[in-house]
């Protein structure tokens, strides 16, 4: 299904292998073109070119400080205040990294969920409806419908349907994280960026989040940063391996985990690091 770049296989393994997605056969939801990130004078991310297929889950893996979160946060301009992002990020034929983009409007289409659950200090219901109301949705039925569907999609509805007026802070960490996911999808985004969404959770909550992601794949393009390689292997279709601020390998997940082409990727996925 995917045509890899023409590679000349010699005895030596390549330093980089970036799979290209054929846009005639696969719909690309988002593509990063020569994206570089600087924090002050320090370059945190080397030129990165990645395409993300629609309705697929792509994992970004790599050690801490490898630039994967930095890259993810650039994709919906969450790095604007802390660093400089160069290059193009193409979304529906628009470069969303250009200065004339309305970032607030853009973030309705490209939502984000963070590592630590960050519900607002409001009720469960208000957590979901608040942003909707700010974006001009006032109709009560519509709001109630969005609360219900988004909570169902995030697999939280059954646990909270009778306590929608209780504070979101009274939920457990795993429930809070699913609420935050529900809050993000209630806006009906196209793309969901998740920055280690399960790393602060226990294994059971983490498994629930994974199930949620597999369900959400039907309707959303998902890009997820994770430290957990089993998780990447279980949920994602594509995987990109980051190392020292650079993408070394990008391929189908099953290839990354069974036949990686770059030596460093082999070391990382096998746990022989350093």
């Amino acid at each position: 299904m995917v045509e890899p770049n023409q590679l000349v296989f010699t005895d030596e393994m390549p330093d980089h292998y970036i799979m290209d997605i054929n846009e005639d056969k696969h719909e690309v939801a988002l593509s990063a073109q020569d994206v570089e990130v600087y924090y002050g004078a320090k370059q945190a991310l080397q030129k990165t070119n990645l395409k993300f297929e629609r309705y697929k889950i792509t994992s970004l893996i790599g050690a801490s400080g490898s630039g994967k979160s930095t890259f993810l946060r650039s994709l919906n301009r969450m790095n604007d205040d802390v660093g400089t992002v160069k290059g193009k990020i193409m979304y529906r034929n628009l470069d969303i990294n250009s200065s004339d983009i309305d970032v607030y409007e853009m973030r309705r289409h490209i939502g984000m969920v963070f590592q630590r659950p960050n519900p607002f200090a409001k009720s469960i219901e208000d957590n979901i409806t608040f942003a909707l109301k700010q974006h001009g949705i006032r109709d009560k039925d519509e709001l109630a419908k969005r609360v219900e569907t988004s909570l169902k999609q995030a697999a939280l509805w059954d646990e909270v349907k009778d306590t929608l007026h209780k504070s979101a802070l009274s939920l457990s960490g795993g429930q809070q994280q699913r609420l935050v996911i529900a809050r993000a999808i209630a806006l009906h985004p196209d793309i969901l960026l998740l920055d280690e969404p399960a790393s602060a959770l226990d294994p059971i909550s983490s498994a629930k989040i994974e199930d949620t992601l597999l369900e959400l794949k039907e309707k959303y393009t998902i890009i997820i940063v994770t430290h957990n390689m089993q998780q990447a292997a279980r949920v994602s279709d594509y995987t990109a391996f980051f190392h020292m601020g650079e993408v070394l390998e990008y391929d189908l997940t099953r290839k990354i985990f069974t036949r990686p082409k770059v030596q460093r990727t082999i070391d990382y996925v096998n746990g022989n690091f350093g």
Binding site: M112, N118, F120
Partner: peptide, 17 residues
């Protein structure tokens, strides 16, 4: 916590909102 500010911006809310 800053997480709250990030939550707001990630939902497409302006800093003022």
């Amino acid at each position: 916590p800053n997480l709250q500010r990030e939550a707001g911006s990630a939902l497409g809310l302006s800093r003022f909102e």
